[in-house]
């Protein structure tokens, strides 16, 4: 009898399962790490290009002088909305300086452009306090995996004004890196809040002497 109960529990768990989603939005990202003259990191400048389906969705209902072409000004309010709502998701950008979590302030210099029917969101995230760590780790991902972030094929990460000798390394999620391989189905089924978006993180590591 107990075994039967167990069986039903298994059946129900299979049905209910973990929370799951597949991405609905794809972002091709390229990021620049900004350095001050004294060699400290001041922030990150992102350029996120959305997929064509989401781009069409995002510009739905927006007025444009020329049909199918949106100027930076016409997209201004949308860019504003974007960065404001991104706050709730911590801008999908997570920084660690020598293993310690660092916070970002409000984004600046944000705008959208529309080219070849896709939108690109540009914005700069200033670090709350500029840092000069030995190692900086930056992760870009959506833990709910509603958005799939992929770093651009060409020039995914640029160090702007970094001191000489700094080494940048990018771990793409599709690299099948050690951590990604360790995660298996268990990650999906473990608990209702399985953060499997984690394994899709793009990890940028900068080591400075």
């Amino acid at each position: 009898m107990r075994a039967l109960g167990w069986l039903l529990a298994v059946a129900l768990t299979l049905v209910a399962g973990a929370a799951s989603a597949h991405p609905h939005v794809w972002i091709t990202a390229s990021s620049e790490l900004l350095y001050a003259e004294d060699g400290s990191i001041t922030g990150v400048r992102h350029a996120w290009t959305f997929d064509d389906m989401f781009s069409a969705y995002a510009v739905q209902g927006l007025e444009a002088k020329k049909k199918g072409a949106y100027t930076r000004e016409e997209l201004g309010p949308l860019a504003q909305t974007n960065v404001e709502s991104l706050k709730e998701y911590a801008y999908f950008t997570f920084a660690k300086a020598d293993g310690k979590k660092e916070r970002f302030g409000e984004p600046v210099d944000y705008y959208l452009d529309y080219k070849d029917s896709v939108l690109t969101l540009h914005f700069t995230l200033p670090l709350k306090t500029p840092l000069k760590p030995k190692q900086l780790m930056l992760e870009v991902f959506d833990r709910s995996f509603f958005i799939d972030f992929q770093m651009a094929k060409e020039n995914p990460v640029k160090l702007v004004g970094a001191p000489t000798g700094c080494q940048m390394k990018l771990d793409r999620p599709s690299d099948g890196s050690a951590t990604a391989q360790k995660l298996n189905e268990q990650t999906f089924t473990d608990g209702p809040n399985a953060n499997f978006g984690m394994m899709f993180a793009n990890k940028i590591t900068v080591d400075c002497p």
Partner: peptide, 25 residues
């Protein structure tokens, strides 16, 4: 590539499949 990394087994396969179909739309 979305659901491919590390996503193993039946669930991983399902995720990858639906992702693929969705992107083709």
């Amino acid at each position: 590539p979305a659901a491919e990394p590390g996503a193993s087994g039946l669930i991983g396969w399902l995720l990858a499949k639906q992702s693929e179909f969705y992107r083709q739309m």
